[in-house]
Design a protein around this nucleic acid. Structure first.
Length: 1000
DNA sequence: ATCGTGGCATA
DNA sequence: GTATGCCACGATG
């Protein structure tokens, strides 16, 4: 191959730090950063981020700056760079296109949000006082190859910061790669793992296998596996092509002969050019201290507030004053477009005053406006098209609007829309009545008893474009409810923010996230109650009064206040997200789930009423028989369902031993205690029969009352399915909660209970899929506490409880008695729950001393667990909160209490929270990605229906079952990535069947 | 009608 | 020992 002749004419574009050259010598450590590669990886891997003041996308810039700073300041002393350069691709075309025209022809153009970030990243490099290089006609890879050769020749070490497989050919003694996204070193072993050959043969393998991304042709039909096999057998590409005729497999032989030239061309494309001429000397790449002023002003301009502060601190200077900015993406110029309330206006006015002192100053002024007093008389009732249009226009001007729907029911699937309220600034809110009527039994829907209001159809036609406009942020409190109500009217609200979930991300553990509480906590405002609105209504029963009958003046005060409060809460909470480092939690684990879960709720699940009613009869008959038996044994009537009466019977009248009282002084009669009682051989036979019969009776009546009798009442009239409601902010740990009905506690443990699951069915021609994480919490524990034995056991796919037992008691797994394993299992669960000897003793029915001995042994065998638990407790006491692996915070404000039992309880909760919470985060991530993943897999019928903490249930047409299984498994197993690479594999078991019982 | 209690279903 | 929600009872308003 001849040298392309124009290369010499093309100059290197570069800037290098000022200062004396630093010669490369033995011991020099040169970092070569693949800038272009990093940008693309960062863009796709990191959560999107925009500059607050103008919405400019800067996620990749931020990731890049953080990475560069880390390389410069946080590498271990032995690995710290003496020289560093960031190297970019100069342009799309280079000399490879002259060899092979189609080279990289498959590359799509860079995403729109990424384009403006390229020049910014080059600015960043210069701001850090780091060498920035690129050269027309060559790829960054070629420059990296050239420098690598030079440095190695001079006796220095090289770290290539990239994960691009094309650079792997450069790995050699003294040269490693570093994947900055995964924080992982790539050496010879990793190359062999990926290519099946050592670095020096990577080029030969790539020449054969080709690369569809770069459009390197290679030899058709030969992939990396085959290529490695061939290269390993024949030594190198030339030898292979020469002796191609010896290959046994006819197809392979033909291909290799026919495409030998193409393979040779591919080699030229793949092999990096390590003699790029005209490069600046590597000596000029020496690391210099950055000049604080330009660096900090660049970072400030990007509005990377925390990074600016961090770097300023490290450089020992003050960060420059921040640009005064309002909250959200509304810029000052937009603000002028409309008359805003006095409070918000003064915030904008302040921007011209001397620069604010802290990054939050602008936000604080808006927050102050949010806390200004409420005047319900200023709220407007909107009854004409013109007035509504004016409010919609106002919302467009401000770029955001808080809204709330008023309906006839708390259940969005039953709810009828009654009105909508909007707020565009603190104190500026309105209510649009739509379906108010004079009395409960009025069916005069046409005129609504002469109440003056817009028709639902007309008003929604005006609101729909606003609610669906991608550039207008819609803010709600528990907005999932409103999403579901409006979905019934064909409106898909987007984009959205939810003040309830913001509060949840910020303050989980500090109290409820309901609007009334938030208003009181953050705004010092007491909200109007629903009762105040409907108090005057003539309706006989309170439950029969709905918002539809509320008088318009009261309705307006109540509804508009809700929107007003929501907007003010947003102004207070939104800036806290970034300041308190939970913006990512909110953006990745909360916000994306709103519409996903709303969809699941609307989808519902089909239930076979026939099965439930048959089970109900069976349970009823059996329990009636048991009841008779009990009454016969007791000799007089008593209420079996009354724990108090049962306790008095057993422990007062019959004087049975072993009675314990609850904290309120009642006799305890729970199943565990009755079990132990019945196991006592000294008891009279009748007493034991009584107890066992009671236990059976309780089980059957429980199943009947809670499930087989109750569930049919939840079947929706129109959809004929059951629509549960998920609360996203009910638990402290990040788990969801399901209610009305709770579909997260459908029985499974007993045979009778399990039958109930057969009533949860797929539509004809469809199947249910159940996919559940295997031992997710123990895997999280193995990861966070870093327990080698646990990690190894999960890596090897062993029975984790048996392994624990074997490790603790020295019993071989082969032929282990089931009781031994059972105890180890209880201990494993105990660990997750923040073990105590008391609890373990209770669970296993052993003495407290015995339980304490088990725990001691456990901690001796797994010292890392005790260390983890101690550390978690320490953090909880010191900071008042603990964190999941994704940064979700769970607060325990009372954990330093002097009350020892309460303190113990809170400490156990704090130990459990990162484990349970991390597992909850993982499934949340899977759920957030699932709809898109199913769509991208071309699966048109697959629907996610239910979540049961570590399980997802889907419904899908028969034909798409196999592909859905694969996609679901892939998404769930990969859910922690790319943010967290767990130290253990994540395993998901998925199965399809016609009903839930069979699928599980 | 509403609330606290005990009990019990799930992960 | 963690995290939930719902049932019936029995006392309260």
């Amino acid at each position: 191959m001849t040298e392309p002749q124009h290369n010499a004419a093309k100059a290197a574009v570069c800037s290098v730090p000022a200062g004396e050259p630093t010669p490369i010598i033995k011991g020099s450590h040169v970092y070569l950063v693949d800038g272009s590669g990093y940008i693309f990886r960062a863009f796709h891997a990191l959560p999107p981020l925009t500059r607050p003041s103008d919405g400019l996308p800067v996620g990749a810039v931020h990731g890049f700056c953080a990475m560069l700073w880390k390389l410069l300041r946080e590498s271990k002393a032995a690995e710290a760079p003496t020289h560093l350069a960031v190297i970019f691709d100069a342009s799309r075309d280079n000399y490879r296109n002259e060899i092979y025209q189609a080279y990289k022809a498959n590359r799509p153009p860079a995403p729109e949000e990424l384009v403006p970030q390229f020049p910014l990243i080059r600015d960043a490099v210069r701001a850090f006082n780091v060498a920035c290089l690129e050269m027309e006609g060559f790829e960054a890879d070629d420059l990296i190859a050239t420098y690598t050769r030079q440095v190695v020749a001079a006796g220095g070490d090289v770290t290539i910061v990239s994960s691009d497989k094309d650079l792997m050919q450069l790995i050699q003694p003294g040269v490693v790669m570093f994947d900055a996204m995964k924080n992982k070193k790539l050496g010879r072993d990793e190359v062999i793992e990926k290519f099946g050959v050592p670095p020096e043969l990577v080029v030969d393998v790539q020449s054969l296998a080709g690369d569809s991304v770069d459009n390197v042709p290679g030899v058709p039909g030969i992939g990396i596996k085959t290529a490695a096999e061939l290269i390993n057998e024949y030594g190198d590409l030339d030898a292979l092509l020469e002796r191609a005729s010896e290959i046994k497999q006819p197809k392979r032989r033909e291909r290799l002969t026919e495409f030998a030239d193409q393979a040779r061309v591919s080699r030229e494309l793949v092999r990096l050019k390590d003699d790029v001429p005209g490069l600046i000397s590597a000596d000029a790449l020496g690391v210099q201290d950055p000049d604080p002023a330009p660096l900090l002003s660049f970072l400030r301009e990007m509005e990377f507030n925390t990074l600016t502060r961090r770097i300023a601190d490290a450089l020992g200077t003050e960060p420059p004053a921040p640009v005064a900015v309002s909250v959200g993406s509304t810029v000052a110029s937009k603000r002028k477009a409309g008359a805003v309330s006095a409070g918000a206006d003064s915030a904008a006015g302040e921007a011209e005053a001397p620069v604010a002192e802290s990054p939050a100053a602008g936000a604080e002024l808006l927050a102050a406006a949010a806390r200004a007093s409420f005047d319900r008389s200023k709220y407007k009732t909107i009854t004409t098209r013109e007035d509504l249009e004016a409010w919609v226009t106002r919302a467009y001007e401000t770029g955001r609007v808080a809204f709330d729907t008023e309906t006839t029911s708390l259940d969005p699937m039953q709810a009828e829309l009654v009105g909508v309220s909007l707020a565009v600034a603190p104190g500026e809110a309105c209510y649009i009545p739509l379906a108010h009527r004079a009395s409960a039994d009025s069916f005069d829907f046409g005129s609504h008893d002469g109440i003056e209001q817009l028709s639902t159809v007309e008003a929604l036609a005006l609101l729909k474009p606003l609610l669906e406009d991608a550039s207008i942020l819609k803010i709600g409190q528990n907005v999932k409810y409103d999403l579901n109500v409006l979905a019934q009217h064909g409106i898909a609200v987007t984009p959205i923010d939810d003040t309830m979930l913001m509060s949840y991300a910020l303050d989980a553990g500090k109290g409820s996230h309901g609007m009334d509480d938030l208003a009181l906590r953050h705004l010092g405002h007491v909200c109007m109650t629903f009762d105040q609105v409907v108090a005057t209504l003539p309706g006989k029963k309170k439950s029969e009064r709905t918002f539809a009958q509320a008088p318009l003046d009261k309705a307006t005060e109540y509804a508009a206040e809700d929107a007003d409060v929501t907007l003010r809460l947003w102004l207070v909470l939104k800036p806290r997200l970034a300041a308190e480092r939970v913006a990512t939690v909110y953006e990745t684990l909360e916000r994306p789930l709103i519409s996903v879960i709303a969809g699941m709720e609307r989808e519902g699940i089909r239930v076979d009423g026939g099965i439930l009613s048959r089970l109900s009869s069976t349970f009823a008959q059996a329990s009636a028989r048991l009841e008779e038996e009990v009454n016969g044994l007791v000799g007089h009537k008593f209420n079996l369902a009354s724990p108090r009466q049962l306790g008095e019977l057993l422990f007062d009248r019959l004087q049975l031993p072993g009675g314990k009282r609850t904290k309120s002084g009642q006799w305890e009669t729970r199943a565990g205690l009755l079990d132990d009682l019945a196991a006592n051989e000294d008891l009279p036979d009748d007493a034991r029969r009584l107890i066992n019969t009671m236990l059976e009776w309780r089980q059957l009546t429980k199943l009947r009352s809670t499930y087989t009798d109750a569930l049919p009442g939840y079947v929706h009239m129109r959809t004929e399915r059951i629509h549960t409601s998920y609360s996203l902010a009910a638990t402290t740990t990040g788990r969801l909660a399901s209610s009305e009905p709770n579909l997260q506690n459908i029985p499974i443990r007993t045979r009778e209970g399990r039958e109930i699951r057969t009533a949860f069915i797929a539509e004809p021609g469809r199947q249910l899929i159940s996919a559940d994480y295997s031992q997710i919490e123990l895997r999280v524990l193995a990861h966070v506490a870093d327990i080698p034995q646990l990690r190894k056991a999960f890596d090897d796919g062993l029975d984790i409880h048996a392994m624990t037992a074997s490790e603790m008691f020295g019993v071989p797994v082969e032929g282990m008695p089931s009781e031994v394993r059972r105890r180890a299992k209880a201990i494993n669960f105990g660990i997750i729950y923040g073990i105590s000897a008391f609890g373990l003793a209770n669970q296993l029915g052993i003495s407290r001393e015995e339980a304490a001995a088990y725990i001691k042994t456990y901690f001796e065998r797994f010292p890392g667990i005790r260390a983890y638990m101690d550390e978690t407790k320490r953090v909880a006491h010191e900071r008042g909160f603990v964190e999941t692996i994704f940064g979700r915070r769970i607060h325990y404000p009372e954990i330093n209490t002097k009350n020892p039992s309460m303190r113990g309880f809170l400490e156990r909760a704090a130990i459990n929270a990162p484990i349970q919470g991390s597992a909850a985060d993982i499934i949340r991530r899977a759920m957030a990605r699932m709809p898109t993943a199913l769509e991208e897999a071309g699966l048109k019928t697959a629907k996610m229906l239910l979540q049961v903490h570590d399980e997802l249930v889907f419904e899908v047409a028969d034909a798409e079952v196999p592909a859905t299984l694969a996609t679901v498994k892939r998404v769930m197993e990969g859910a922690a990535l790319p943010v967290v690479k767990l130290a253990v594999p994540i395993q998901v078991d998925a199965k399809a069947a016609e009903n839930w019982e069979a699928a599980h």
